[in-house]
Design a protein around this nucleic acid. Structure first.
Length: 424
RNA sequence: GGAGGGGUAGCAUAGCCCGGCCUAAUGCGCCCGUCUCGAAAACGGGUAGGGUGUGACAGCCCUCGUGGGUUCGAAUCCCACCCCCUCCGCCA
């Protein structure tokens, strides 16, 4: 979240950011108003409390007050109680309002209404030209009998599928290889986190309260299924004060991710592009504020190299202000080319959240021993999202007979499978 | 799920029975200083977070797991809940 003191002192900057995101900036006015009332109340209450404290201490020192004095103090207590209830109530409302304010927008972010305003920064490789009509992955998957849509639906309903045989193995190979590259070459610590988290964890990372409808919730235990590992990784150090030499912290994790996709009902229903459950390897960094720009570049590099080594064509897209995620100041997407369905597929989203998530999660660090704690910056990026990489690989490495060659870097992970042909 | 123990400032502990100089102590760590060529040790001093407020200080308020209650006054008494540890039971 943004610091309340910042909203109070720079309301125009916050309004501009919200307008730039195509959100209603009048929220800022509601906050300023509520905050002013809160401060007036708190001031009244604290003044009375000071009086009460003083009187009570006097009794402790001098002893035996008159019954009159006690009655007056009892009355004082009642007045404080009324003010305090009111203050608590208004503080709750203020907190709820502040939680709905999105992050600021980095000055480098292009202005735009929605994804049509995103800017292609560069294209790496050339869209592969096949000398035969390339098939989309759903066709390849069904012919090879490695993706089963009907039986996925039978088990769990629409937007569920299952992978079998070589496709399941290929996904596992990708996960293992991604994690190996990040841990061995990029210095990340591998984490196996919970998939179910408390509400406060979702709030801290910015999923709640705004995106409630996109999340699965277990009513029995009041736990939420993670839509991305970012949620858990960012919160690992919630509430802690870290020493400066602990930073940067680099975590990566493979997890399943769960999304209700209420906002994209009816879109991308074909194939495995957008399911309710998908696998992803995620990277998260906690860094000192001064280095977060440079770290975003590194993060982007860590994700990009995977695509390059897989021999996939991809492009880097900078999100415009209207398409930026709620908690992010700046985001680059990586999109891999899928020649079968003739589409750029978002396989990674690399973002700098600044101190926004750290504030919400109350993660701090001491720049120097003995110094006041400050908020680190958090960054996150997919490295990479599995089903879409799978799509790009199947469609890019397909051969005229409908079989699929395994990319070289994955061969050590495929247990001898070099060509994926029709499964029994 | 059952029994017992526990949750106090960066960490570790005291305080709780018996409410009030608790304005929360002590040790470690950390910071500053003395000593030293330098360091270690020793010695002296400092060292929680948040709100409000200020030009900056000061001051005031809150926080002893969380939420209620009793009281002039709660870390301390009462109630509920959460979490951790040990043992037992069940279990992939």
């Amino acid at each position: 979240m943004l610091a309340l003191t910042y909203i109070r002192s720079q309301p125009d900057a916050v309004r501009r950011a919200m307008a730039s995101r195509r959100e209603d900036p009048t929220l800022v006015d509601a906050i300023l108003e509520t905050d002013a009332r809160r401060r007036a109340l708190v001031d009244q209450r604290d003044t009375l409390r000071a009086e009460q404290n003083k009187a009570s201490k006097e009794i402790g020192r001098a002893g035996k007050p008159s019954e009159e004095a006690l009655a007056a103090l009892r009355e004082l207590r009642e007045r404080i109680k009324v003010l305090d209830d009111e203050a608590t109530d208004i503080e709750r409302r203020l907190d709820a309002l502040v939680l709905r304010v999105p992050n600021l927008v980095d000055p480098s972010v292009p202005e735009g209404d929605d994804e049509s305003g995103n800017v292609v920064v560069r294209v790496v490789g050339e869209p592969k030209r096949l000398d035969f009509a390339p098939r989309p992955h759903w066709e390849l998957g069904e012919r090879l009998r490695i993706i089963d849509f009907e039986r996925g639906v039978k088990l769990s309903g629409t937007r569920f599928y299952h992978l079998r045989g070589a496709a399941a193995r290929l996904q596992r190979a990708l996960i293992a290889w991604f994690l190996d590259v990040h841990t061995r070459e990029h210095g990340y610590t591998e984490v196996y986190p919970p998939y179910l988290v408390k509400e406060e964890v979702m709030v801290a990372s910015g999923q709640l309260p705004k995106f409630r409808d996109n999340l699965y919730h277990d009513a029995e235990e009041d736990l939420w299924l993670i839509p991305t590992a970012e949620v858990v990784l960012v919160n690992i150090h919630a509430g802690e004060i870290l020493s400066a030499d602990a930073l940067p912290i680099d975590y990566c994790a493979y997890t399943a991710c769960f999304r209700r996709e209420k906002f994209s009902a009816g879109r991308d229903v074909r194939g495995i592009k957008r399911g309710h459950q998908f696998d992803k390897v995620e990277m998260v960094k906690l860094v000192e504020p001064g280095s977060s720009d440079a770290e975003l570049d590194r993060l982007l590099g860590h994700a990009s190299t995977l695509l390059e080594r897989l021999g996939l064509t991809y492009r880097v897209v900078q999100l415009c202000s209207g398409d930026l995620g709620f908690a992010m100041t700046k985001t680059f997407d990586l999109e891999a080319w899928a020649p079968g369905q003739q589409e750029w597929l978002e396989v990674s989203s690399c973002s700098n959240a600044g101190d926004y998530q750290a504030r919400r999660a109350n993660i701090r660090y001491r720049p120097e021993p003995g110094a006041r704690p400050e908020y680190p910056h958090t960054l996150n990026g997919s490295g990479l999202a599995l089903p879409r990489v799978l799509i790009a690989i199947l469609e890019t490495y397909q051969q005229p007979d409908g079989s699929v060659r395994v990319p070289d870097v994955l061969l050590p992970y495929m247990g001898g499978i070099e060509i994926i042909s029709t499964q029994a």
